[in-house]
């Protein structure tokens, strides 16, 4: 099947990409647009490292054909990172040592971003529910939960 053009909004900017049918959003981000903050840990929908926001909802970009998000709003970790300094969620992860190897961090941070956008004061249970699809093999999740709680406090007092 021939390639076609898909247009969508990426991090506040309209973009057009030429793709073969069923090309995933992950492939478009990483290989066509060279935005590599979105990781590729399994391409099976099992690890959560490729999580991005589509219209504010966390989605696994490795399972998402880019045609399906035509005309919609996509936000990646690059899109929430300020030019200088860090987003309050990033700062909370940094300050709480909620990172070790760092490979799961982009996906986890995007999930927490989506959670805090719709629920600014989540319980620990709600944070656990939100990140249940993200594999972190290093930290044991405890610092991630602390960082998410810390991020909620920072955003509320901001």
């Amino acid at each position: 099947m021939p390639s076609r053009i898909v247009a969508f909004n990426l991090n506040g900017r309209d973009v057009e990409v030429m793709v073969k049918p069923l090309t995933t959003l992950q492939t478009v981000l990483r290989e066509h647009l060279h935005l590599t903050a979105t990781k590729s840990g399994c391409r099976q929908g099992g690890c959560g490292t490729c999580t991005v926001l589509v219209n504010g909802e966390p989605m696994l970009s490795c399972l998402l054909p880019v045609e399906d998000i035509a005309g919609q709003k996509v936000v990646t970790l690059e899109g929430i990172t300020p030019i200088e300094g860090l987003h309050p969620i990033q700062q909370a992860f940094f300050d709480n040592y909620a990172i070790q190897c760092g490979y799961c961090s982009p996906g986890v941070i995007m999930v927490i971003k989506a959670l805090l956008d719709r629920n600014p004061n989540p319980t620990r249970q709600e944070i656990m529910d939100a990140i249940a699809g993200n594999v972190c093999r290093c930290t044991g999740y405890e610092p991630i939960l602390r960082a998410a709680e810390d991020a909620a406090r920072r955003l509320q007092s901001a």
Partner: peptide, 8 residues
């Protein structure tokens, strides 16, 4: 099978 945050 690897546990997640709920098993912490």
């Amino acid at each position: 099978i690897i546990p997640g945050p709920h098993e912490l």
